[in-house]
Design a protein around this nucleic acid. Structure first.
Lengths: 224, 224
DNA sequence: TTGCTTGTTGATCATCTGATCAACTGAAAC
DNA sequence: GTTTCAGTTGATCAGATGATCAACAAGCAA
């Protein structure tokens, strides 16, 4: 007799829907939003027709995938912690970016976000607008309020953000070797960023000539 | 009489192939590598069947697109300029990244590179390996050789690189507003980066407590 | 004009893809 | 056991897609 218990053919609608969405997140992350319903069904272990009992169309299914992947990724507590001036600024920055990275540095999030971005989904712009207003702007204000730093402009904040997010892009989009533990790299970026904004920097902080200036900076004299 | 001169129906093979590749670069950048040969043909102003006179398959056509977009984008003179120690380090960095940005911050390059990366093309990994070995590593060596800086590790170089490249990602992938002239933002990133690596940084460079350390950095004490 | 070469086209094929539907089936209710 | 309801399936449709091919036509030589 066969001891292996096969999954029951009939499932609660809740459970079946869950199973399909979970498989869809994984599948579309891998092959892109152009993946076929047939391949997805096979991977989910159901027939293709069944998908249309739970979702009215492929677009509807993708909607559920987006919701699953993006909804609730931005923890509102982060904002409170960013603002908590009892904690040293540096620690707040490092802590926030470690948490942020832990939230979005997954195969599914990174890739679906990028596929959706290329496809022109409005969702991405909404999300990044949110990041700018609710996360980067507060971070910037906190840095500006800290006496030890020159106030960075938003472009500087995006540069810090991009340098960190690029870790996830290297790993999950380009599939290049990247640190397993991104913590040290994040701390390094934050440390360099703050040190780069430090007030009254020593004149010879970098090589001779140009003075270090935060953010907007002057033109670099073209060579010769 | 109709003064408008229509394009001749018959073209030199060279010219026709050129016309198709040019249209293909633009088309696939927009819709992704899954775009159809019919839509492409319509956009190029030729029939779909004609594509197969110039390319044996869609994959073959995509090969030509990749070649067109990626080949020769990395100017070998950059390496010489990076190494030219007669020029101040800061100027070399700014100059290089301005040139690099001018080379790759185009709708076509950015998007095709990202589509190809998501699709798992080996091409991307080759290209970025090249960037790491021929560009970032020399930059790192030059910074290390400059007396005014602590030597950054490769992760720090990737963070600088990512912060700058993310400008192009914001603009061409996510289609968010971004500076038209990326020059100042690049100078700002370079300036902050170098200042962040400056030797013997003042102890209160950033907020109280942790010492600024370049690159690998220590753990951040978790709150409470 | 005639004939040849070759760039170009419309039609067509086999397959794939999103979507639909009648029929089947397992489990709970009676 | 029988009935009933709802989850599931195989078959199928219409349109899209990569690829092919015989036929057409523009330029050139004789």
């Amino acid at each position: 007799m066969d001891g292996t218990l096969r999954p029951p053919r009939r499932l609660e609608p809740e459970a079946r829907r869950e199973q399909i969405v979970a498989a869809a997140v994984c599948y579309f992350a891998e092959v892109g939003l152009g993946g076929t319903t047939r391949d997805l069904a096979q991977r989910a272990g159901v027939t293709q027709a069944l998908l249309y009992r739970y979702f009215s169309s492929k677009a509807d299914l993708l909607e559920a995938v987006f919701e699953r992947v993006f909804l609730g990724r931005l923890d509102p507590r982060w904002i409170a912690e960013i603002r908590d001036r009892r904690v040293p600024l540096r620690d707040r920055l490092c802590r926030f970016y470690r948490q942020y990275a832990a939230a979005i540095f997954t195969y599914e999030w990174m890739r679906i976000f990028m596929w959706a971005g290329l496809a022109g989904e409005a969702l991405n712009r909404r999300y990044l607008g949110h990041v700018a207003e609710r996360l980067l702007a507060p971070l910037r204000e906190e840095i500006a309020a800290d006496g030890s730093c020159q106030a960075p402009d938003m472009e500087a904040m995006w540069a810090l953000h991009g340098g960190i997010v690029y870790l996830g892009i290297r790993r999950f989009i380009y599939q290049l070797p990247a640190p397993d533990d991104v913590g040290p790299a994040i701390d390094g970026s934050v440390n360099r960023f703050l040190a780069g904004l430090a007030v009254s920097p020593s004149a010879e902080a970098s090589s001779r000539g140009a003075r270090p200036s935060a953010g907007r900076s002057g033109r670099v004299p073209s060579r010769r």
